[in-house]
Write a protein that binds this DNA or RNA. Structure first.
Lengths: 357, 357
DNA sequence: CTGTTAGCGCATTCAT
DNA sequence: ATGAATGCGCTAACAG
């Protein structure tokens, strides 16, 4: 019945079971200190009336909301949706719901979202739009609920954080390309203002310098979409000393680059080798398959969520000691060797026989 | 300051601004019937104290929760995460938050989730695990908040629903393969208990029968993962009359099939043509690119969410007329012709336009 | 073991 | 235009 009779309340149950409201409250909270008889009576009254505790009232009384907030740049992005999946899973095990919000990497939206969420959740899992933002830092400082950052940290503020080894992953990838003998390696794509991208660039640069190779980085904003990537690649390949390999800083750039090279009939890896940061479902299915730096996405979500619930559990008892230095948890990345870097025989291309149907 | 001083309340503001609580309440609710002077005074007090209305209290007073519940089988699945993205967007425009829950297609989990959500949200967007479940039907009947189903309908109960044209899409795909001259078309993959899969099979079958071709369907549960799909394909191809084309009922099957055929060195489409249901990011990048039935994912989410907010708006005023027959909204699917069906030259470069998503 | 009572923070009559 | 008082449903003292 849509909009039917009003929901039964605790006192309805009390009246029906002929007990006090306290007793009912005890029953719905575990039934401790209630005689078996009354317990049974109350329980049957509860089911009879279809009573469900009013959550708002509980919250008003100062209980936990049993909701956490998840703030990500995008949920359509498979990286974050996988994180969300893991987080949801952990939350469910803790009897907690997850409010999903997306910022689109917009600080204003992020700010507003956090404000809304603070009063309505027990804690926050946040992918900060900017690691430097003073405003965000201040906002987080004044927040009364635990916040965990993941994927990207916040600087100059002690917040539990879990990230992946962007630097190490990128360095390993670049080193690998260098080991293949490539010296002119183009580092392509990515938003230069993002922590993750900067770390990856740092890793790339470190590896290049180790090898006395000249870093060649192209992160111009135009390189973010297909068109921009295309222009960039054309430009670099037309140069006097065209790159022998390309290291893509993120998923979408890898994919764009891959199809652009294909379109240009530039063979991978024999003419230009390719390694991408961040694995994706079809990376192993494409021909050639694509070598990538893989991030432990589920683990990232799980760890962040667990950290939050840990805080939440602590918060009940002793107050949190914010004095202690909090070091970000860094999860390991893995270099997945496939064909595009030159490691494997390029998989047998499909026979393109035009034989009839 | 973690766990610092208690949040300012409405009466704190009232005291600070030297007015009554009523006035403050008026101010935060639009400021009607308040003199400009007091309004300004109260406003400054509000910002000064950093007052944010307590949401639980409002809800307790009978207001809306300004939260809707989203119940999907999985959020890691790009289909549902794209839906979620669209839904989140619409919700945000309505000043409403979204609680994300996943069922993993488990009815028990779904049941529990709905119960939890009913008392804590204004409405629900649901992808039902089963279109037939009596239990779910009863649960939905007794629910006091609006529910919208999407992607899959519920039978024998009037619930606003928005789905895509699975039947028509599959029929069009199959017809297309038939037009290419293929007669032995294998319909592969998919969970037979799901509405969407059944519709697609129906569409496939209808097209086959139209053409007097013998339907060949393999939906055994073993065909759901890579291994199972592999076995199924091998079996069918070894047969006396091997299929000339394969129509995959869902994304993951398409991808598995694609890579299995590749591994078997069976050329697509010259030896076996391939069409999949549901588009995916790299379908156009693979060589050969894959012809698919594309669903309007964003539109699905948008429409479902809009429908819900429409109901929510109505609910305030006149009661909903549940007597009226509610027909599911059916969104159109599109057949995206690429190379794997035989429509394009196999290895010709793809167009320069960026991919769909 | 069990009941009575007093708020949690807010929106809302009903006065003024 | 404004304020005092009431109660939403629940939990937690504090009695019995």
């Amino acid at each position: 019945m849509k909009g039917g009779k009003r929901h039964a309340t605790l006192s309805d149950v009390a009246r029906s079971a002929d007990v006090g409201t306290t007793t009912v409250s005890r029953v719905i909270n575990g039934g401790a200190k209630v005689s078996p008889k009354t317990l049974a009576r109350v329980r049957s009254a509860i089911t009879e009336l279809g009573f469900i505790p009013n959550h708002a009232a509980r919250t008003l009384r100062g209980e936990q909301t049993k909701i956490i907030g998840l703030i990500v740049p995008s949920i359509a992005d498979s990286f974050f949706s996988s994180c969300a999946d893991a987080i949801q899973e952990v939350a469910r095990r803790h009897g907690t719901l997850v409010i999903l919000t997306v910022t689109n990497n917009d600080p204003a939206s992020e700010n507003a979202t956090i404000s809304t969420l603070v009063r309505r959740t027990d804690g926050l899992l946040l992918v900060p739009t900017s690691s430097h933002s003073l405003e965000l830092r201040n906002q987080l400082r004044d927040i009364s609920i635990p916040v965990i950052c993941f994927d990207r940290p916040m600087y100059d503020i002690q917040i539990p954080t879990v990230i992946t080894q962007n630097f190490e992953g990128a360095r390993a990838a670049t080193r690998h390309l260098l080991e293949h003998g490539f010296r002119r390696i183009l580092c392509l794509g990515g938003e230069s203002e993002l922590f993750t991208m900067n770390e990856r660039v740092r890793g790339y640069t470190a590896a290049m310098k180790e090898a006395n190779a000249r870093p060649l980085i192209d992160m111009r904003s135009t390189a973010c979409d297909y068109e921009g990537t295309s222009n960039a690649i054309v430009k670099h390949l037309k140069g006097a000393k065209p790159p022998q390999a390309i290291f893509c800083l993120k998923n979408s750039t890898t994919i764009s680059t891959y199809s652009i090279l294909q379109k240009m009939k530039i063979s991978i890896p024999s003419q230009v080798a390719l390694v991408g940061f961040d694995d994706f479902e079809l990376a192993s299915t494409l021909r050639p398959s694509i070598t990538v730096v893989q991030q432990p996405v589920e683990e990232l979500g799980h760890t962040a969520a667990r950290l939050l619930f840990q805080r939440l559990a602590l918060a009940k008892g002793m107050p949190i000691n914010d004095k202690e230095k909090i070091k970000p948890i860094q999860l390991k990345t893995r270099l997945i060797l496939r064909a595009s870097c030159g490691c494997r025989e390029v998989e047998e291309p499909q026979s393109i026989s035009a034989s009839g149907h």
